[in-house]
């Protein structure tokens, strides 16, 4: 935008976003707890929230960093079991619920991030597509470990009796904070470093960017939020089975990111919301889910390979700026058209 357009100042932007977030929270809470929708519908909302965190966190690595991991569900599993075990333990149970939830979520994220660093350091130091293979293996190994450690994880039958902490309020706040942190991170020198690696590794290195550090960092942050989503999932289901974290679960999340547009947070959010709620809402669709996904992917890859939203970043303030500058922008467009016609 040119200089003379009215701009919304930074503090005002944050205020606008804050007001919107609280308004959404109030509306959502009223709808969920006010009996406007039934139990099945409100459980869909919770799942949408969990998948939004999974998609935006995977997007850090696929969209922003430009790598292809295939084991996001593995990190989700690590976080799910870490959170569940904490909440079931004496420590978790002795704390007031609110504090226990917060500590459990952060603990789940940290454990998942540690796994992310352990996997990421060897996989990301190598040039080439080793990450896909190694994360694919990791996802499977985690599942096998869960099955074979019944004393800790409950084995194949599952881990039961997890406190159902994932209320609308908890999930909503977790979604907002996760998205906000990822957004703040990406709009900083660290975020730019991550993007520069996607754009051109050699050039990034020549600009003094430690690419291994930033790759591992992005991967760890991505795993951290996958872990939080996993813990939310545990608190939503009340029961964890290893089968929930198989390869298809990873692919599911990847499809959301690819469809939504790699590198677009709003794209990931929309795709996660649509792809989670549609099959749940229309049970008939569920049988054909994988067929529909494949078709959708093929169609998008043919007509819009960059995904539905491309790399577009949503900004409420930018939309408002367009509205307040509407007259000026229209006048400029007309002037430009006239100029083009003459020239």
């Amino acid at each position: 935008m040119k200089q003379y357009y009215k701009r919304i100042s930074m503090p005002a932007r944050y205020l606008i976003n804050l007001v919107l977030i609280i308004a959404f929270l109030a509306a959502g809470n009223a709808i969920v707890s006010g009996g406007v929708i039934n139990r099945a519908q409100s459980s869909i909302i919770l799942q949408v929230g969990i998948y939004i965190i999974l998609a935006v966190s995977l997007n850090i690595v696929t969209g922003y960093l430009g790598q292809l991991p295939l084991g996001h569900a593995g990190f989700m599993a690590v976080g799910a079991y870490a959170g569940a075990i904490f909440w079931k333990s004496g420590y978790g149970a002795s704390l007031p619920a609110g504090l226990s939830i917060i500590i459990g979520l952060i603990f789940a994220g940290i454990v998942a991030a540690i796994f992310g660093i352990i996997i990421g350091v060897p996989a990301l130091r190598l040039k080439g597509d080793y990450l896909a293979i190694i994360t694919l293996g990791f996802g499977e190994i985690i599942r096998v470990c869960i099955i074979n450690l019944p004393s800790i994880t409950g084995g194949t039958p599952g881990l039961m009796g997890i406190p159902k902490y994932s209320t609308f309020l908890v999930v909503y706040i977790a979604v907002v904070i996760s998205c906000a942190i990822i957004h703040m991170l990406m709009k900083s020198r660290h975020g730019r470093a991550i993007l520069s690696i996607r754009e051109n590794e050699i050039a990034a290195e020549s600009c003094g960017i430690n690419i291994t550090y930033y790759k591992v960092m992005a991967f760890a942050v991505s795993s951290f939020f996958a872990g939080i989503a996993g813990a939310l999932y545990a608190g939503y289901q009340g029961l964890l089975t290893p089968a929930s974290f198989d390869f298809m679960a990873s692919i599911n999340i990847l499809v959301m990111v690819v469809l939504g547009g790699m590198g677009s947070m709003i794209g990931s959010i929309i795709a996660a919301a649509v792809l989670t709620s549609l099959p749940l809402a229309l049970q008939a669709l569920n049988t054909y889910r994988m067929v529909i996904y494949s078709l959708l992917l093929i169609i998008v890859m043919i007509f819009k390979p960059s995904g539905l939203m491309g790399t577009y970043d949503f900004s409420m303030s930018r939309i408002l700026e367009r509205i307040i500058n509407f007259k000026q922008i229209r006048a400029d467009k007309k002037a430009k058209k006239a100029g083009d016609a003459n020239g």
């Binding site: 900083s188 020198r189 730019r192 470093a193 520069s196 754009e199 020549s206 003094g208």
Partner: peptide, 25 residues
């Protein structure tokens, strides 16, 4: 040429300024 093609001109330069920009994550 190896520019960061999908980023803005300003961001390209700011990536060059990465180590001169001093704040933590």
């Amino acid at each position: 040429i190896r520019l960061f093609k999908n980023l803005t001109v300003e961001d390209n330069v700011k990536i060059g300024l990465h180590n001169a920009t001093d704040y933590s994550m």
